[in-house]
Amino acid sequence: MSEADPIQVATLWFLSARTMAIAGEEIPSLQESATGLYAQAILGFTEDICLKAKDAAHIKNKTLIDCLSGLRQLPRELSEKILTGVMMISYSDRSMKPLEVRWASMLASAIEVSPDEFQRCCVNARVIASMLRPHGAES
């Protein structure tokens, strides 16, 4: 995948993030808007890119295998940022269901992060989740 294709990268982000939210069995509005804020504030996508990334032409036919494969091909820094964001989505309700753990595990395997690197992503995810919650990271 070309590094210069931000729409494809943004599509990977939205697919990874919504999969984590779905694995958590509910999609509260907080997770919904946190997804876009993270895309724009941390990943640096523009509004237009975020809109196009969710367009049927880009996202409709992408499977989770495509998503894992796409993430694997991204530069390491970027894929770690996506993993961090996905963990942020997972943390936002302060509980993890088995499918959330599985998805996190699959993402971590796909981008080949070490346990230490994964833990760093988790720490950063906690930091960001606490910023995006109205009352810190409290439930």
């Binding site: 919504r18 999609i27 919904e32 876009g36 724009q40 509004e47 809109l51 969710k54 367009d55 996202i59």
Partner: peptide, 11 residues
């Protein structure tokens, strides 16, 4: 608003 949401408006 739509750019911030998890799903596109047509989905």
């Amino acid at each position: 608003r739509e750019s911030l949401l998890m799903f596109g408006p047509q989905e």
